[in-house]
Design a binder for these strands. Sequence first.
DNA 1: ACACTATTTATAAACATTACAAAGTAAGAA
DNA 2: TTCTTACTTTGTAATGTTTATAAATAGTGT
Lengths: 144, 144
Amino acid sequence: MAEEKLHEAIDAMKNSGVRITPQRHAILEHLIQSMSHPTADEIYKSLEGKFPNMSVATVYNNLRVFKEIGLVKELTYGDSSSRFDCVTTDHYHIICDDCGKIVDFHYPGLDEVETLAEQVTGFRVGDHRMEIYGKCPDCQKSKH
Amino acid sequence: MAEEKLHEAIDAMKNSGVRITPQRHAILEHLIQSMSHPTADEIYKSLEGKFPNMSVATVYNNLRVFKEIGLVKELTYGDSSSRFDCVTTDHYHIICDDCGKIVDFHYPGLDEVETLAEQVTGFRVGDHRMEIYGKCPDCQKSKH
DNA sequence: ACACTATTTATAAACATTACAAAGTAAGAA
DNA sequence: TTCTTACTTTGTAATGTTTATAAATAGTGT
Ligand SMILES: [Mn+2]
Ligand SMILES: [Mn+2]
Ligand SMILES: [Zn+2]
Ligand SMILES: [Zn+2]
């Protein structure tokens, strides 16, 4: 399943004329296998073992390339650094205020809100984003 | 109306034991009168004339103070710098992809989504955020 | 006026991200 | 396979926003 997704991603790169380098392969693999929403630096650190000489700029460069060909989405929250999501199908996120955990969460698109916004503001709507904030089950248990 | 809002803000500061300084007064006044969502640096630059010696740190410090006593909200988008909103009643924003314009937009809270997310994820939900992206009327006209 | 504390200022530091140039490499052509 | 070339990686410097720090300043209550 993850294997399959990686192959699809590599095909997408070939079709876009983007070269497949060992670094790109590893970054994609990490994104797909981790099943999380890592920061550029987390990816960089997780690949230190395999690529002791890889530059952090390479991670940033390639995440941008992946974004451009639609392989990943960038998630920008208030905190310092962006996170990256290789699940590009529409979904929302719910985020723990205490520990920062990010969990995927599906819901039909908010078409009504988009339509109303279009009517009220005169904008031509293209997209929207939504996140929900709260306390995750683990953090609810700890009596802090 | 803006005058009134400023007075309310000053009262809130008094009640919170926060001193009223000329800088704080000016920052609040700018936030209220501009009717926009300025960055810290935009506020800083707009007050250069009146306060040639004001430090940019003062702007950041005071925006944090205002946030703590609930006078402003910080808006963090993907781009580099935070924006600040002195309208603290619940509302959403629609943002132009081309020129960055931010327009307020009212809609009943998305209670359904919050409830569903709570059930599906086990999180205890506290809050949510949503923005809509599109092309503003002005940018639609220009044939770029 | 005095004392006390909050605030401002100037500056340096932190941090994520991008820019740049030189060295290295993937991929197609010969 | 070897060659060629444009793309990629690397190392480092630069950028831009925000925070930390310490000394100077200014509100506030006595
Ligand atoms: Mn996700
Ligand atoms: Mn607003
Ligand atoms: Zn948590
Ligand atoms: Zn616009």
